[in-house]
């Protein structure tokens, strides 16, 4: 009985590592151009999202502004209430995260660390990370997965039809976080859904 159970668990673990079956490793030159989830240019240097945050049974909301400041070579992220009160103001510069300002209640390390990691993932280019493995999906045309180590986790970047569709953050085979990307705008997607699997937390960002 134990042998069958072990065999079953082994099969499940193999299935969760999808690159082993439907994917084949490809050369870096064979992949589509990789950009961060949110990227900025001189003409499109900011994007504003309505945020809906569900933590267990509590619902929170607000407005998130992402703005690239060329003079600082940094992206500022401001989260405020619908009424206009700023909750926090973060900066990410070359991957380095800084808290510019956070009001009482939002200055707790636990809250900051959740947002820090989520925002860093949205703004980083996986190709610039280390230990990249690129796979081509053999069953879906023009679909790729990039496995990239970051913050001690593996991140699978799945592209469908040349467009980033999903990022799966994993610790070994266990999924820690799922980021779903919707909309045709490659620079500023229409909607982002970040589902945390270790806590009951879902962050939904809808472009306004």
């Amino acid at each position: 009985m134990t042998r069958y159970l072990l065999l079953f668990l082994y099969s499940i673990s193999l299935l969760s590592c999808k690159p082993l079956f439907n994917y084949t490793a490809v050369d870096y030159n064979g992949i589509p151009k990789v950009e961060p989830v949110l990227s900025f240019t001189e003409d499109a240097d900011k994007v504003v999202y309505k945020a809906q945050i569900d933590l267990y049974k509590k619902h929170f909301s607000g407005i998130v502004v992402f703005k690239y400041i060329p003079a600082d070579s940094a992206t500022r992220i401001v989260f405020m209430s619908e009424v206009g009160i700023t909750f926090f103001d973060f900066q990410i510069r070359n991957g380095e995260f800084t808290v510019i300002n956070a009001i009482a209640g939002f200055d707790k390390e636990l809250i900051i660390s959740v947002f820090r990691e989520d925002f860093q993932i949205l703004l980083r280019n996986p190709v610039e990370g280390e230990n990249k493995i690129f796979y081509k999906n053999l069953t879906i045309e023009n679909s790729y997965t990039y496995a990239s180590d970051f913050c001690g986790f593996t991140h699978d970047y799945s592209y469908e039809n040349g467009k980033l569709a999903e990022i799966i953050s994993k610790e070994r085979v266990k999924i820690k976080k799922l980021i779903k990307i919707f909309g045709d705008d490659a620079q500023h997607p229409q909607q982002l859904i970040i589902e945390h699997k270790n806590v009951k937390l879902v962050i939904q960002l809808s472009r306004i």
Binding site: K46, V48, V65, K67, R76, V78, M80, E82, V83, G84
Partner: peptide
């Protein structure tokens, strides 16, 4: 009409 003016970022969010 509500306008949030973020001076340093030169961003205004209107609702």
């Amino acid at each position: 009409t509500q306008q949030k003016h973020m001076t340093y970022l030169s961003v205004t969010v209107e609702s």
